[in-house]
Design a protein around this nucleic acid. Structure first.
Length: 242
DNA sequence: GTGAATGTTAACAG
DNA sequence: CCTGTTAACATTCA
Protein backbone atom coordinates (compact mmCIF):
# COMPACT_ATOMS: atom_id res chain seq x y z
CA UNK A 1 0.00 0.00 0.00
CA UNK A 2 2.90 2.35 0.34
CA UNK A 3 4.33 4.87 -2.04
CA UNK A 4 4.85 8.49 -1.08
CA UNK A 5 1.27 9.67 -1.69
CA UNK A 6 -0.24 6.85 0.41
CA UNK A 7 1.85 8.01 3.33
CA UNK A 8 0.48 11.52 2.96
CA UNK A 9 -3.05 10.10 3.23
CA UNK A 10 -2.02 8.17 6.31
CA UNK A 11 -0.63 11.31 7.85
CA UNK A 12 -3.91 13.10 7.26
CA UNK A 13 -5.89 10.27 8.82
CA UNK A 14 -3.74 10.41 11.93
CA UNK A 15 -3.87 14.17 12.22
CA UNK A 16 -6.60 14.13 14.94
CA UNK A 17 -4.08 12.52 17.27
CA UNK A 18 -1.67 15.41 17.12
CA UNK A 19 -1.64 17.15 20.51
CA UNK A 20 -2.94 14.06 22.32
CA UNK A 21 -0.85 12.17 24.84
CA UNK A 22 0.15 8.53 24.71
CA UNK A 23 -1.27 6.67 27.69
CA UNK A 24 0.29 3.31 26.80
CA UNK A 25 2.35 1.79 24.01
CA UNK A 26 3.47 -1.68 23.04
CA UNK A 27 4.00 -4.14 20.24
CA UNK A 28 6.52 -6.76 19.22
CA UNK A 29 8.87 -4.44 17.35
CA UNK A 30 12.31 -4.46 18.89
CA UNK A 31 12.39 -0.82 19.83
CA UNK A 32 12.03 0.74 23.26
CA UNK A 33 8.51 1.95 23.90
CA UNK A 34 8.16 2.56 27.62
CA UNK A 35 9.38 6.13 27.21
CA UNK A 36 6.35 6.90 25.04
CA UNK A 37 3.93 6.89 27.96
CA UNK A 38 3.06 10.46 28.82
CA UNK A 39 4.53 11.84 25.59
CA UNK A 40 2.32 14.11 23.52
CA UNK A 41 2.30 13.56 19.76
CA UNK A 42 3.71 16.86 18.60
CA UNK A 43 3.70 16.48 14.86
CA UNK A 44 3.38 13.97 12.05
CA UNK A 45 5.64 14.21 9.04
CA UNK A 46 6.50 12.00 6.11
CA UNK A 47 9.66 11.58 4.11
CA UNK A 48 8.91 9.45 1.11
CA UNK A 49 7.73 6.14 2.52
CA UNK A 50 8.64 7.03 6.10
CA UNK A 51 5.88 7.98 8.52
CA UNK A 52 7.38 10.10 11.27
CA UNK A 53 5.59 10.46 14.58
CA UNK A 54 7.33 13.22 16.47
CA UNK A 55 7.35 13.22 20.28
CA UNK A 56 9.32 15.54 22.57
CA UNK A 57 11.80 12.83 23.47
CA UNK A 58 12.25 11.20 20.06
CA UNK A 59 10.62 10.36 16.76
CA UNK A 60 9.12 7.01 15.88
CA UNK A 61 9.73 6.08 12.24
CA UNK A 62 7.26 3.66 10.71
CA UNK A 63 7.84 1.97 7.37
CA UNK A 64 5.03 -0.09 5.86
CA UNK A 65 7.30 -2.16 3.65
CA UNK A 66 5.16 -4.18 1.24
CA UNK A 67 2.39 -5.46 3.50
CA UNK A 68 2.17 -3.05 6.37
CA UNK A 69 -0.82 -1.05 7.49
CA UNK A 70 -1.68 1.51 10.15
CA UNK A 71 -5.18 1.34 11.59
CA UNK A 72 -7.16 3.40 14.06
CA UNK A 73 -9.14 1.39 16.61
CA UNK A 74 -9.01 -1.68 14.39
CA UNK A 75 -7.82 -4.74 16.26
CA UNK A 76 -6.66 -7.49 13.95
CA UNK A 77 -6.02 -11.13 14.70
CA UNK A 78 -2.29 -10.70 14.25
CA UNK A 79 -0.34 -8.80 16.85
CA UNK A 80 0.69 -5.27 16.07
CA UNK A 81 4.34 -4.42 15.53
CA UNK A 82 3.63 -1.28 17.49
CA UNK A 83 0.57 0.32 19.02
CA UNK A 84 -0.13 3.57 20.79
CA UNK A 85 -3.06 4.16 23.09
CA UNK A 86 -4.37 7.68 23.36
CA UNK A 87 -7.00 7.35 26.08
CA UNK A 88 -9.91 5.50 24.51
CA UNK A 89 -8.40 5.37 21.02
CA UNK A 90 -5.60 3.16 19.79
CA UNK A 91 -3.40 3.43 16.73
CA UNK A 92 -2.06 0.10 15.48
CA UNK A 93 0.84 -0.55 13.13
CA UNK A 94 0.66 -4.01 11.60
CA UNK A 95 3.65 -5.65 9.91
CA UNK A 96 5.52 -2.42 9.95
CA UNK A 97 9.20 -1.75 10.46
CA UNK A 98 9.75 0.54 13.42
CA UNK A 99 12.73 2.63 14.35
CA UNK A 100 13.41 5.23 17.01
CA UNK A 101 15.10 8.40 15.86
CA UNK A 102 16.78 10.76 18.29
CA UNK A 103 18.62 13.02 15.85
CA UNK A 104 16.93 16.20 14.63
CA UNK A 105 15.03 15.22 11.48
CA UNK A 106 16.54 18.01 9.45
CA UNK A 107 19.96 16.48 10.05
CA UNK A 108 19.09 13.13 8.53
CA UNK A 109 16.42 13.87 5.93
CA UNK A 110 16.81 15.90 2.77
CA UNK A 111 13.29 17.18 2.18
CA UNK A 112 14.26 18.46 -1.27
CA UNK A 113 14.15 14.95 -2.72
CA UNK A 114 10.76 13.96 -1.27
CA UNK A 115 8.32 14.06 -4.17
CA UNK A 116 5.43 14.87 -1.83
CA UNK A 117 7.20 17.67 0.00
CA UNK A 118 6.69 21.38 -0.51
CA UNK A 119 10.47 21.60 -0.34
CA UNK A 120 10.94 19.27 -3.31
CA UNK A 121 13.51 20.76 -5.68
CA UNK A 122 13.92 19.75 -9.30
CA UNK A 123 17.30 21.40 -9.22
CA UNK A 124 18.47 19.33 -6.28
CA UNK A 125 17.20 16.07 -7.77
CA UNK A 126 18.73 16.86 -11.15
CA UNK A 127 22.14 17.36 -9.62
CA UNK A 128 21.83 14.12 -7.64
CA UNK A 129 20.82 12.24 -10.78
CA UNK A 130 23.95 13.43 -12.49
CA UNK A 131 26.00 11.61 -9.89
CA UNK A 132 24.87 8.32 -11.44
CA UNK A 133 25.65 8.68 -15.16
CA UNK A 134 26.06 4.95 -15.76
CA UNK A 135 22.80 3.82 -14.19
CA UNK A 136 19.62 2.97 -16.02
CA UNK A 137 16.93 5.48 -15.26
CA UNK A 138 14.52 2.66 -14.39
CA UNK A 139 16.80 1.62 -11.55
CA UNK A 140 17.58 5.11 -10.35
CA UNK A 141 13.92 6.01 -10.05
CA UNK A 142 13.65 3.54 -7.17
CA UNK A 143 16.60 5.03 -5.30
CA UNK A 144 14.99 6.60 -2.24
CA UNK A 145 17.87 9.00 -1.73
CA UNK A 146 17.19 10.56 -5.13
CA UNK A 147 13.52 9.93 -5.88
CA UNK A 148 12.21 9.77 -2.33
CA UNK A 149 8.75 8.26 -2.23
CA UNK A 150 8.75 6.78 -5.71
CA UNK A 151 7.70 3.13 -5.89
CA UNK A 152 7.07 0.74 -8.71
CA UNK A 153 3.75 2.26 -9.75
CA UNK A 154 5.05 5.80 -9.92
CA UNK A 155 8.18 4.63 -11.69
CA UNK A 156 6.23 2.95 -14.48
CA UNK A 157 3.66 5.70 -14.90
CA UNK A 158 6.23 8.44 -14.95
CA UNK A 159 8.47 6.76 -17.51
CA UNK A 160 5.46 6.35 -19.75
CA UNK A 161 4.35 9.93 -19.31
CA UNK A 162 7.84 11.19 -20.12
CA UNK A 163 8.06 8.82 -23.11
CA UNK A 164 11.28 7.46 -21.70
CA UNK A 165 12.53 3.88 -21.90
CA UNK A 166 13.54 2.34 -18.53
CA UNK A 167 16.81 1.10 -20.01
CA UNK A 168 18.08 4.55 -20.92
CA UNK A 169 21.45 5.43 -19.45
CA UNK A 170 21.25 8.51 -17.28
CA UNK A 171 24.16 10.18 -19.06
CA UNK A 172 22.51 9.68 -22.47
CA UNK A 173 19.16 11.22 -21.59
CA UNK A 174 18.77 14.70 -23.14
CA UNK A 175 18.37 17.49 -20.61
CA UNK A 176 14.95 18.34 -21.95
CA UNK A 177 13.70 14.79 -21.48
CA UNK A 178 15.14 14.69 -17.99
CA UNK A 179 13.33 17.91 -17.17
CA UNK A 180 10.10 16.38 -18.40
CA UNK A 181 10.69 13.32 -16.27
CA UNK A 182 11.28 15.40 -13.15
CA UNK A 183 8.18 17.41 -13.83
CA UNK A 184 6.11 14.27 -14.30
CA UNK A 185 7.42 12.73 -11.08
CA UNK A 186 6.11 15.68 -9.13
CA UNK A 187 2.89 15.93 -11.14
CA UNK A 188 2.04 12.24 -10.91
CA UNK A 189 2.72 12.26 -7.19
CA UNK A 190 -0.07 14.80 -6.91
CA UNK A 191 -2.35 12.88 -9.29
CA UNK A 192 -1.69 9.65 -7.41
CA UNK A 193 -2.75 11.33 -4.18
CA UNK A 194 -5.99 12.69 -5.63
CA UNK A 195 -6.85 9.50 -7.49
CA UNK A 196 -6.14 7.38 -4.46
CA UNK A 197 -8.43 9.56 -2.39
CA UNK A 198 -11.34 9.26 -4.78
CA UNK A 199 -10.75 5.59 -5.48
CA UNK A 200 -9.75 5.90 -9.12
CA UNK A 201 -6.04 5.19 -8.85
CA UNK A 202 -5.87 1.89 -10.70
CA UNK A 203 -8.47 3.04 -13.20
CA UNK A 204 -6.11 5.77 -14.31
CA UNK A 205 -3.03 3.65 -14.80
CA UNK A 206 -1.67 4.02 -18.30
CA UNK A 207 1.29 1.67 -18.02
CA UNK A 208 1.46 -0.14 -14.71
CA UNK A 209 -0.18 -3.58 -15.00
CA UNK A 210 -1.46 -2.68 -18.47
CA UNK A 211 -1.34 -4.94 -21.50
CA UNK A 212 -1.55 -2.41 -24.30
CA UNK A 213 0.06 0.93 -24.93
CA UNK A 214 -2.71 3.55 -25.00
CA UNK A 215 -0.71 5.64 -27.47
CA UNK A 216 0.38 3.04 -29.97
CA UNK A 217 -2.10 0.25 -29.27
CA UNK A 218 0.65 -2.35 -29.32
CA UNK A 219 1.43 -4.73 -26.45
CA UNK A 220 3.48 -3.38 -23.57
CA UNK A 221 6.66 -5.16 -22.67
CA UNK A 222 6.58 -6.56 -19.18
CA UNK A 223 10.04 -7.36 -17.91
CA UNK A 224 12.47 -7.14 -15.07
CA UNK A 225 14.72 -4.43 -16.42
CA UNK A 226 18.02 -3.38 -14.96
CA UNK A 227 19.22 -4.50 -11.57
CA UNK A 228 15.94 -4.09 -9.83
CA UNK A 229 13.84 -7.17 -9.49
CA UNK A 230 10.57 -5.40 -10.06
CA UNK A 231 8.38 -5.52 -13.12
CA UNK A 232 8.56 -2.72 -15.62
CA UNK A 233 5.82 -2.06 -18.17
CA UNK A 234 6.86 -0.09 -21.21
CA UNK A 235 6.22 0.51 -24.87
CA UNK A 236 9.13 -0.07 -27.21
CA UNK A 237 7.72 2.34 -29.76
CA UNK A 238 6.76 5.50 -27.90
CA UNK A 239 9.18 5.30 -24.99
CA UNK A 240 12.49 6.33 -26.44
CA UNK A 241 15.67 4.59 -25.41
CA UNK A 242 18.69 6.82 -25.18
C1' DG B 1 -3.62 -23.93 -3.64
C1' DT B 2 -0.29 -20.80 -6.11
C1' DG B 3 1.86 -16.87 -7.11
C1' DA B 4 2.50 -12.22 -7.23
C1' DA B 5 2.20 -7.70 -5.28
C1' DT B 6 2.72 -0.08 -4.10
C1' DG B 7 9.60 -2.71 -0.09
C1' DT B 8 13.97 -2.94 2.18
C1' DT B 9 17.92 -4.89 4.37
C1' DA B 10 20.86 -8.39 6.44
C1' DA B 11 23.37 -12.36 5.44
C1' DC B 12 25.89 -14.93 2.37
C1' DA B 13 28.83 -16.40 -1.75
C1' DG B 14 32.32 -15.65 -4.89
C1' DC C 1 37.12 -5.83 -0.06
C1' DC C 2 33.72 -5.24 -3.28
C1' DT C 3 29.58 -6.86 -5.60
C1' DG C 4 25.91 -9.49 -6.68
C1' DT C 5 22.47 -12.91 -5.08
C1' DT C 6 19.36 -14.90 -1.71
C1' DA C 7 16.66 -14.92 2.43
C1' DA C 8 13.85 -12.84 5.43
C1' DC C 9 9.90 -10.27 7.12
C1' DA C 10 5.03 -11.27 6.76
C1' DT C 11 -0.43 -10.08 4.20
C1' DT C 12 -3.83 -9.89 0.79
C1' DC C 13 -5.74 -10.57 -3.48
C1' DA C 14 -6.61 -12.72 -8.04
Amino acid sequence: MPEGPSLVILKEQLQPFVGRTVTAAGGYAKVSKQWLKGQPLQEIRTWGKHLLLCFPKATIRIHLMLFGSVKINEKKKVNASIWFRFGKDTVYGYVVQVKMITEPLDDIYDWRTDIMSRSWSAKRVRSLVQEYPELWIGDLLLDQQVFTGVGNIIRNEVLFRAKLHPLSRVKDIPAKVMDTLLKEVKAYGKDFLLQKKNGTLSKNWQAYEQDTCPRDHIPFKKAMTGKTKRHTYYCNRCQERY
